[in-house]
Amino acid sequence: MQNQPYYRPLRENDFYADKRSARPIIQGTVARGHLEADTYFYTGKIGSNDGDYMPFPVTAEVMARGQQRFNIYCAPCHSELGDGNGMIVQRGFKHPPSYNTERLRKAPIGYFFDVMTNGFGAMPDYAEQVPPQDRWAIAAYIRALQLSQHATESDVLPGEQIAQQPPPGVNVSPPFDTQGATTAAPAPAKPNAAPANGGEAKP
């Protein structure tokens, strides 16, 4: 009664040589709802070039989701600021470039989606761990991170002031960037700062 003759996920099965009760999907199988006809949504590419628009509207919920997923899947290496000093890098993984390099600031948003989908350099792909909707949300959030680290005084809301040092309790690795979005609010990016360059949905 404790162990019944049916398979719970990943339970062993002696019938098959590899002992997997969950069988690999036969090549070419298309599951219901997985036709992936919208190629831009699933690849981030138009032809062979990276696209530069979001396939769905960017709302505050999308940004919040992107922030949450970024902090789970990307921050271990890229750090919550996107500077590439995450904990795994401190433990010896190859240092990824900061999102605030000229190259990545100019990269189209589809580029980030493509790197998450297929990996790049030392970075493995995250296609299995992060579904496409979330990969796009993360890409939008990366745009917000870039803005937050590269904002000018004119981007600050009227009445707010740029802090001269990080708010108490927030550790920012030196040199502290006073041009960054360390305004009175401690969060690196507010969700409603969302529609970044290229972060807007295609009309």
Partner: peptide, 19 residues
Amino acid sequence: SSFAGIPPTKTCMNCHSQI
């Protein structure tokens, strides 16, 4: 899902291909 998921070996290798 009902099942939390045991990561495939590839998830281990995300980091342990280098560390």
